[in-house]
Design a protein around this nucleic acid. Structure first.
Lengths: 82, 82
DNA sequence: TTCATATTTGTCAAATATGTCAAGTATGAA
DNA sequence: TTCATACTTGACATATTTGACAAATATGAA
């Protein structure tokens, strides 16, 4: 199990979120609307682009809006073994 | 899929880390020694106790030291359905 | 008890995540 | 083309994580 750089981890997390979001047919605005506590498209965009090292609670809120387990967003296991 | 409070999410993440760490027979000091980039027992303790909302990269580093997938640490799915 | 090890907690400074707003870019429809 | 929608990016202020260190608190062994 080799370690990835921070930027690689963030990029994969972001790709996971964007992929799931598009699969479900949601826009970023849709997500914001589904999340109880505050979050906005600026932050979602930054996370999807891997520009920010999100906190686990922010990712949890996104996972709730996407209706998937948090662990699915955090799946970087196989990617890191490539 | 009901939402959990921030404090609940953090608590479960912390419990996951501590449980895996003890299962593997590691001390917090062991973890620090296994992580390439800097981290210390102060932060690990705070995360295990659910006192801090860790960033995903910090959790990734911990998962590497624990030799488990990041998604295993982030497994709050079943917990939240209780 | 003493001693060693492990963990927790407090404080501090530095770095950075987040929310907000504005502006810019991209895409497609009419 | 214009227009609407969606996304990105920059700047800023605020809040919080993180790393560092010290001190306090377990915990168990001898």
């Amino acid at each position: 199990m080799s370690s990835m750089k921070r930027s690689e981890v963030l990029k994969i997390i972001g790709q996971n979120i964007k992929r799931i979001r598009l699969e479900k047919g949601f826009t970023q605005v849709d997500l914001v609307g589904k999340i109880e506590t505050r979050i906005d498209t600026t932050n979602i965009s930054r996370i999807e682009k891997g520009r920010t090292n999100a906190t686990i609670h922010t990712l949890y809120k996104i996972s709730q809006a996407l209706e998937v387990p948090l662990s699915e967003i955090c799946d970087v296991y196989f990617s890191e073994r490539v």
